[in-house]
Amino acid sequence: MQDFLYMSGYGPYVWSCFLLTFAVLIYNAWQARMTLGEEIVKAQRRARTQTGSDT
C-alpha cells in the first residue's frame, strides 16, 4: 500500500494530478447542473408573468 502511494517517488505529482482532475470534473458537472436549475426557475417565473399578463 505504501509503495502504491509512494509511486516510486512521484507520489505527490501523480496524486495531485488525479485529485485536481477529479475536482475539476466534479465542479464542472455540478456547476452546469446548478446553472440549469437556476435557468429553469427563471424560465418558469418568466412564463408565469407572461401568462399572467396575457389573461
Partner: peptide, 14 residues
C-alpha cells in the same frame, strides 16, 4: 445540461 441552460436563456416564448 449546458445546452439546456442556453436554450432557456434564449427562449422568450412562454
Amino acid at each position: 445540461d449546458r445546452i439546456r441552460s442556453e436554450i432557456l436563456r434564449r427562449e422568450r416564448n412562454a
